[in-house]
Amino acid sequence: MNTQKNSYVIIYMVVIVVIVSLLLSITSGVLHTRQEDNKRLDTKKQILMSLSTFENDAEVKIYEDENADKVYAETITGYFLIDEFGKVKKELDPVKDFDVKPEEGEYAVYTAEVGGETKYVLPMTGAGLWGGIRAYLALNSDLNTVYGVYFGHDSETPGLGANIVTPRFRQQFTGKEIMKEGVMRSIAVMKKGDTADGQDQVDAISGGTITSKGVESMFANSLHNYEQYIINNRENKGGNE
């Protein structure tokens, strides 16, 4: 058979492409539900990781474990969406409405019970060097002091920018304050030895400057969206500093 004829080439390519696309759509169709379940579980784990204190290894293990679903249902007590003026727009159920994502102009807040205290978890997104970075920031009930933070990234450089996920970097945030004298200041990520003016700071990752700066702007931009909510709810508590 002549494999060089134009008609053969065209038919050959059509057949190949049809076979490959069939194969790919079947794979995607069969595996889709499993992948969605995995993604959901992973998000739950990330939210829980922001609430893990590094003093207690056992606690971290529970959050990383397969029973994240159970721990999530027990720990996360509330989920609501707010607008930029700090008004609560939708009250949701953290388990049943897990798939409800904030729309344009809405921002998610999770509340959690840890050791009898209420914590607030704020999701954040930003840009690193190569791709997106994200975080879950857990605040104490005063909506000011950081309780914990979890970082995730799509494609930062291994060994450099990707080190934002390490406990070593993350635990620096615990105890830092995002407001100073009632004004939103966010948290600065500074080169070792430099000091930030009028705001709390953590050490950047050496060799990962752009990712570190990405973390800093992610904090500044995302906290800006929550500013009114945080200020309103601090005042409602009668200004307990």
Partner: peptide, 22 residues
């Protein structure tokens, strides 16, 4: 043809990984 085969294989492997070892 080579490229199509490689791309298809890589996509299938990545989908399988996402489903079973996230």
């Amino acid at each position: 043809v080579q490229l199509v085969v490689v791309a298809a294989l890589v996509t299938v492997v990545s989908e399988v990984l996402k489903a079973f070892v996230y």
